[in-house]
């Protein structure tokens, strides 16, 4: 057992933990920051992704002792950082994930959003290929990734003051749904 001096989400913390613990273990089982998920726990799934000095890393393959003096950002730190920077409410990436329904079970979501945040901090206007590449270390077994990519695209567009281009099926379905809802209400009133 030793004392670690950690900077987590802007806080300077002293934590007593066994010397061989990973950052993920310290976050979850000492600090109660359970937003970082313990999935495979061996570097395959990306659910434990946190930012270390702004870069995405796997907390399960990071020894806590090696991050002393460096800045760790977990999912719990995104909203406060956004507010401290003058923003309102959740980080735009969190907000976009929420609005796009970019989750089902939610287990991959913290890691996904942190990978997306790291990408957008580095490159505010990434291409679709760059988004896919940046998120390729985060596995999702529910969504099929479509809504996740849409959420990142929405966050990018809103930051740039643009409206996301509707997909071909969205354009069609918007027109259809307008007509359908009119006839639906007509049927119901009849």
């Amino acid at each position: 057992m030793g004392v670690l001096h950690l900077k987590i989400n802007g806080d300077d913390l002293e934590v007593a933990a066994p010397g061989h613990w990973t950052l993920l273990e310290v976050l979850r089982y000492r600090l109660g920051l359970t937003g970082s998920k313990q999935g495979c726990d061996k570097g395959d799934c990306g659910a434990c992704t946190v930012l270390l000095d702004g870069k995405p890393v796997l907390a399960c393959l990071t020894l806590a002792a090696t991050v002393q003096g460096r800045h760790v950002t977990t999912i719990e730190g995104l909203l406060p950082a956004h507010v401290a920077a003058g923003g309102k409410g959740a980080d735009p990436v969190q907000d976009a994930f929420d609005r796009c329904g970019a989750l089902q079970c939610g287990f991959c979501q913290s890691g996904m959003m942190l990978s997306a945040r790291a990408l957008l901090n580095r490159n505010p206007q990434p291409s679709d290929a760059e988004i896919k590449d940046a998120l390729s270390g985060n596995l999702c077994r529910c969504t099929g990734y479509t809504q996740i990519l849409q959420a990142v695209e929405l966050a990018i567009c809103e930051a740039a003051g643009r409206t996301p281009t509707p997909r071909s099926w969205e354009r069609a379905s918007c027109a259809d749904s307008g007509a359908a809802s009119a006839s639906d209400s007509g049927e119901r009133s009849a």
Partner: peptide, 8 residues
């Protein structure tokens, strides 16, 4: 690997 693995 992934961006996470290349960071470390």
């Amino acid at each position: 690997g992934s961006a996470q693995i290349r960071s470390q």
